[in-house]
């Protein structure tokens, strides 16, 4: 188990490899479809948000205001990352993002950008909304709440020991690719050897 603390250095990221389990502490910024499209189209980050050495979390959290008027995250599982595949590489390049958290993995362009610019894809456990919400200690800020609505806004979250697995590393490897190849070969072998019913 490896502890990661933001901001991440290029070196810390290059030390990670596919299959490593990590605990993330520090700051992560949520961003999903609307934010990715906006940045891809050349939109500027809101003042106060700095993604350099930072982590983007593909997540539309459920956030409520408690009795004292403070934001509280009540559910915060990852959403499917492939929807951001057209945009992610560019955001990694332009904003020096060092980590992307999501689920389901990403495609070849993101994989290439991780290698070239020094970034990793961190797979969180899909559906684990309650466990992951408990790792969010505080909502530091929210941006674009009016513009994009709550699930699509940039929520700046302070997290502690947020569990994830490195499934795309900065050396060009992807666990998704490797498991797919191996399981595909296993299935072909099984079909070839199984008696026809």
């Amino acid at each position: 188990m490896i502890s990661l603390t933001t901001p991440l250095t290029a070196e810390a990221v290059r030390n990670l490899k596919v299959g490593d389990e990590v605990f993330i502490s520090g700051i992560v910024c949520t961003g999903r479809d609307a934010v990715h499209k906006y940045l891809h189209e050349g939109g500027a980050l809101p003042e106060g948000v700095n993604l350099s050495g930072g982590i983007i979390y593909h997540c539309g959290p459920v956030v409520i205001k408690d009795a004292a008027g403070a934001w509280k995250v009540v559910a915060a599982g990852p959403t499917t990352s492939t929807r951001e595949e057209p945009y992610q590489w560019q955001i990694i390049r332009d904003h020096q993002v060092r980590g992307v958290i999501g689920k389901g993995g990403m495609g070849p362009r993101t994989q290439a950008a991780c290698k070239e610019y020094g970034c990793v894809y961190l797979h969180a456990v899909g559906g684990a909304a309650q466990v992951l919400a408990e790792c969010v200690k505080r909502v530091r800020n929210v941006y674009f709440l009016e513009k994009f609505g709550s699930p699509e806004a940039i929520w700046e979250l302070e997290v502690e020991n947020f569990p994830a697995v490195v499934t795309i590393d900065a050396h060009g490897r992807s666990l998704h690719e490797e498991v797919f190849k191996a399981s595909n070969a296993a299935l072909s072998g099984h079909i070839a050897s199984a008696p026809a019913h």
């Binding site: 009540v74 559910a75 559906g127 684990a128 466990v131």
Partner: peptide
């Protein structure tokens, strides 16, 4: 752990 937490807190298992 998520299953256990959701049940105890009576919160949605998944968002």
């Amino acid at each position: 752990r998520n299953i256990d937490l959701a049940k105890r807190k009576s919160q949605p298992l998944c968002q």
